[in-house]
């Protein structure tokens, strides 16, 4: 807004002598400002309106959600209570937190040393390893799902649990390794050399020097991994679908729809409740997240 006022004020002929050329330029920049910001508002509507509709529908009663009304009357706040009272909803929360929380910790702990080695050690096969990491990162999970499923279910009797999804995270995650490596590359070697001069081994250097400096990178990796687990649908569908006690929110949400048929208001309330934590986390950790996205593509 301030910009508009400035532009208007500057263009005011009473404030002093303004040449016609300057006036045209200012008028042009004002028009430009209006054009850019109207486009911005239009785009914002595109991005935000779906959320608005979802939230509004989640507050309607069942009848109204099936009509063409857009505004709830009356507001049914109890929809949210009813979602929480659904059998299993709290279990899905618990399972999702376990999968996302434990998975994230395991991923960071197991990926960091690998990323460090790939970024800072010189060894034969380093380039090949990196290629393989990238290949694994790009590999659709469905490529290996048949043998993996048979392995977990038939050999280890772990179908109906989330362990087949959590345990692999203790063995490094390709995407996290790659992202951390990109970040660690930006840490100047001088810091590491200094630590070694002080007599630190590689492990001490990693823990005492690299980790504190790499906190933003680690935060980004942790967030990505947390969101990945939170959003994962295919994994729980394959391994946990047969046991409702192991369902996660993403998987449970889809079954919630099937149990509630056309109760779109309840389904939308559940949808909002699944989206909300992700968005809250984002607001607290926006910077780390955006940095992470940038890191994956740009700072090579």
């Amino acid at each position: 807004m301030a910009q508009v006022l400035d532009a208007v004020k500057e263009a005011d002929p009473a404030t002093g002598a303004v040449t016609p050329a300057e006036r045209t330029a200012r008028r042009k920049s004002l028009l430009n400002w209006i054009a850019v910001h109207s486009l911005g508002v239009a785009a914002a509507l595109f991005f935000v309106l779906p959320f608005v509709f979802l939230v509004l529908t989640s507050l309607m009663n069942g009848q109204q959600a099936l009509t063409r009304d857009l505004w709830p009357h009356p507001f049914e706040w109890s929809n949210y209570q009813r979602v929480f009272d659904t059998d299993g909803f709290l279990t899905w929360w618990k399972n999702t937190l376990l999968y996302a929380g434990l998975g994230t910790v395991l991923t960071v702990v197991s990926s960091l040393p690998v990323a460090y080695a790939l970024a800072k050690f010189r060894f034969r096969g380093r380039h090949l390893s990196l290629m393989l990491v990238i290949s694994m990162m790009m590999l659709p999970p469905q490529v290996v799902v048949i043998p993996m499923y048979l392995f977990w279910a038939k050999q280890l009797d772990l179908s109906g649990t989330l362990w087949p999804l959590i345990i692999p995270m203790a063995f490094g995650d390709a995407f996290s390794i790659f992202l951390l490596r990109q970040f660690l590359l930006t840490i100047p070697n001088e810091y590491l050399d200094a630590a070694k001069v002080d007599g630190c081994g590689e492990l001490r250097t990693l823990l005492k020097v690299v980790v504190p400096m790499a906190k933003p990178g680690i935060a980004a990796v942790a967030l990505f991994q947390f969101f990945y687990a939170w959003n994962d649908y295919f994994g729980p569908q394959i391994y946990a679908s047969e046991n409702p006690a192991a369902w996660t929110l993403s998987y449970g949400l889809e079954s919630f729809k099937s149990a509630h048929h056309t109760d779109w208001n309840l389904t939308m309330a559940a949808t909002v409740l699944v989206m909300a934590p992700v968005i809250l986390v984002f607001f607290f950790a926006q910077k780390a997240f955006v940095e992470g996205v940038t890191l994956t593509g740009v700072k090579g």
């Binding site: 993403s250 949400l253 939308m268």
Partner: peptide, 10 residues
């Protein structure tokens, strides 16, 4: 950021 299942349902 919207979880895919939630966004798709929406």
């Amino acid at each position: 950021l919207a979880p895919p299942v939630a966004a798709t349902l929406g």
